[in-house]
């Protein structure tokens, strides 16, 4: 029982400290230097969040660069030695290629399916019932999804035993012979990607459905009068009008793929050629206890995220100009 109690205590303590900080520091500020108060007050509000972000994100990100240039445990400067080690280790190019494949397939597939689901359920009776169901995998989490899909992909090895995995049952019923979906490269990476698409389509659908709502209904009605089918309406009329939302979903999913670890770890443990960069980083940090190589992998991930960064900053600049 100690954990929940200390958790409650921590919440109360932090909330109290923050409110107290605001009240007190505001009053002290007014007393000591009233003429500067306007300039300093916003920073009082920003200080708690700013300090924590600086400690948890900004400083560690900078530190990663330093660690990547040093040996295991941050001892001894090795320059680009860690990167040379990466290039020499067969596992790194493999994980790099796998991550690139994920980046190319999953955001596109989940956004496309999400758009289809949003368009299909838009202004449909019962659509309000369907959407939570498609969003449901968000609630099950990646480890839960891994159990669910390992059951779907289960393989008994032929040999007269009944296949208890749904996919193999359907596959054999359709005339194929049962296959080990999770241990055969490159098929297994596609099987894993299907799971991530399954779990993220709901997220894409929700955001895109909200964006579809902002489109004036006349454009859709005019297209319907002209005899356009539902797919055509989604692709030609609606999608171009919600370009911003599509870009947002796409980048959020790309970021999700860069962080991907839980799913692969729980489905295949990174074996059989399914390892991704984040998993490799974890292995080298906590398996091999080599913070240098782990940080070098982390930097590679950071570089892969640079296009997102540019896109996001571009969005901010446009917003500021408005």
């Amino acid at each position: 029982m100690a954990h929940p109690l200390s958790a409650l205590l921590a919440i109360l303590l932090c909330l109290g400290a923050c409110l107290g900080w605001l009240m007190l520091s505001g009053r002290v500020l007014d007393r000591l230097m009233p003429e500067r108060a306007v300039l300093i007050r916003p920073w009082l509000f920003l200080a708690p969040a700013g300090l924590i972000v600086a400690f948890c994100l900004v400083w560690p990100l900078l530190n990663t660069v330093w660690l990547a240039l040093h040996g295991p445990n941050g001892v001894g400067f090795v320059g680009f030695g860690n990167f040379r080690l990466l290039a020499g280790d067969a596992r790194f190019p493999e994980a790099f290629r796998t991550t690139l494949l994920w980046l190319a397939v999953v955001p596109a597939a989940a956004t496309g399916l999400g758009l289809a689901a949003a368009g299909l359920t838009d202004r449909l009776r019962g659509g309000g019932l369907v959407r939570p169901l498609i969003f449901l995998p968000m609630a099950t989490g990646f480890v839960g999804a891994a159990v669910i899909w390992r059951l779907v992909y289960d393989y008994r090895g032929g040999g007269g035993l009944d296949e208890i995995g749904l996919l193999n049952a359907l596959w054999t019923a359709a005339g194929g012979s049962a296959r080990p979906w999770l241990t055969q490269a490159p098929l297994n990476t596609w099987a894993l990607m299907a799971v991530l698409v399954w779990s993220q389509t709901g997220f894409a659908m929700v955001i895109l459905a909200a964006a579809l709502r902002t489109i004036p209904a006349e454009t859709v009605e005019a297209a319907q009068l002209d005899g356009a089918g539902p797919l055509r309406i989604v692709l030609r009329i609606q999608a171009p009008q919600i370009g911003g939302a599509i870009a947002l979903v796409w980048s959020a999913l790309t970021l999700m793929v860069l962080k991907l670890f839980d799913l692969v770890q729980a489905m295949t443990n990174g074996q059989w050629g399914t390892q991704v960069l984040a998993g490799l980083m974890f292995d080298w940090m906590f398996g091999a206890q080599d913070s240098g190589r782990a940080s070098a992998v982390a930097l590679v991930l950071l570089v892969l995220a640079v296009p997102l960064l540019v896109l996001a900053l571009h969005g901010v600049r446009r917003e500021a100009r408005q």
């Binding site: 948890c56 560690p60 980048s251 860069l258 962080k259 980083m281 982390a298 900053l313």
Partner: peptide, 15 residues
């Protein structure tokens, strides 16, 4: 926005 667009794994080890 910049912080949101970065994967957080690099921060884990130093933190």
């Amino acid at each position: 926005v910049g912080l949101m667009a970065l994967p957080l794994q690099p921060a884990l080890v130093p933190l």
